[in-house]
Amino acid sequence: MSNNQGKSNRKLIGILIAGAVGMFGFGFALVPLYDVLCEQLGINGKTQNSASTYKPFTIDESRTITIEFMAQIQSDMPWEFKPEVKRMRVHPGELVRTHFKAKNLSLKDTIGQAIPSVSPGQGAAYFNKTECFCFNQQRLMAKESAELPLIFFVDPDLPDSITTLTLSYTLYNITDRGYVGSVE
């Protein structure tokens, strides 16, 4: 094999290996990219993970949005977990306060993490929480119960086609994971 060919072979191999390594990195880059896309497009029902600030909107009295609350627990979570009210009717722009009730049924201290999801997904970006128990891990001692607060408002820009928003929380048992701080 002539030297010239050896040289151009090495160059091409270098480019191709760089391409493969780059695509390996791209696979991991898809992770933050996916989160950004979901957040921006409000798909997948993901809501924001941190508190939003409430600026006094003009409350749109002409529209009423039904908000439904759902609470689920993962199978290995020894808690009782349910919303205080299952459904409420709010005006867009109105700051609303409610809470969920949680009770640790076991004899062990347990740490839970609630993950919210809004349906329909297109409405997720308009459902804003100024305070939510889902921003932090929740620890309940054995047999302890607690009221977990949620303060939210619906953005008045919510598309007219949406009249009902369902907020669903799934509570995960993360006691064994040894997490410190919030999931953020």
Binding site: L30, V31, I115, V183
Partner: peptide
């Protein structure tokens, strides 16, 4: 893992991108 802030549906996106 949703409990840790991840998303199981993202697996399907990355997998099927391959």
């Amino acid at each position: 893992d949703a409990a840790g802030g991840g998303d199981p549906v993202m697996f399907q996106h990355i997998f099927w991108f391959f």
